[in-house]
């Protein structure tokens, strides 16, 4: 593609495994980028303090789709406190970098996940 994407980005983009919905999610996060107009939503399932399932829904470019996929892979089966610390740099590293103009796509994925974790914790508190 014209954007100078790495092979890995293209592979995640064309064969996304972590896109869709999880059943009865425990936390949901939504984030949008006002500049490019794109939107992501992530749903997580939490078991014993770990993210047991995670799926993104992405309205965005190839970099956004690839980033959300990779982030899901990075944090799957990780304890929440670790998942919360995931950074867009890790996403970039796993993807073999993105063009500078597309770094915000990875940032969007990370923001989205943070919101889902917050959502989960808020729900937890309310139920206690």
């Amino acid at each position: 593609m014209n954007q100078g994407y790495s092979k890995k980005v293209l592979e995640y983009f064309l064969n996304p495994k972590n896109l869709g919905e999880v059943k009865n999610p425990d936390g949901v996060g939504r984030a949008g980028n006002p500049v490019c107009g794109d939107v992501m939503e992530v749903q997580i399932k939490v078991r014993e303090g770990k993210i047991s399932d995670i799926k993104f829904k992405t309205f965005g470019c190839a970099a956004a789709i690839a980033s959300s996929n990779v982030l899901a892979e990075i944090v799957k089966n990780k304890p929440l406190e670790n998942a919360r610390e995931a950074t867009y740099k890790e996403v970039l590293k796993e993807l073999g970098d993105l063009p500078p103009l597309k770094h915000h796509c990875a940032i969007l994925a990370v923001q989205c996940l943070k919101k889902a974790i917050e959502d989960y914790e808020e729900k937890l508190q309310r139920n206690n």
């Binding site: 593609m1 954007q3 293209l10 983009f13 064309l14 500049v35 490019c36 107009g37 794109d38 309205f59 965005g60 470019c61 190839a62 970099a63 956004a64 789709i65």
Partner: peptide, 22 residues
Amino acid sequence: EGESIGGYLESKGIFVSTGSAC
């Protein structure tokens, strides 16, 4: 999103253009 449609089309050998910001 247009860039995504374009990317999938390109993977099938089809080259189009998009007005998408992305």
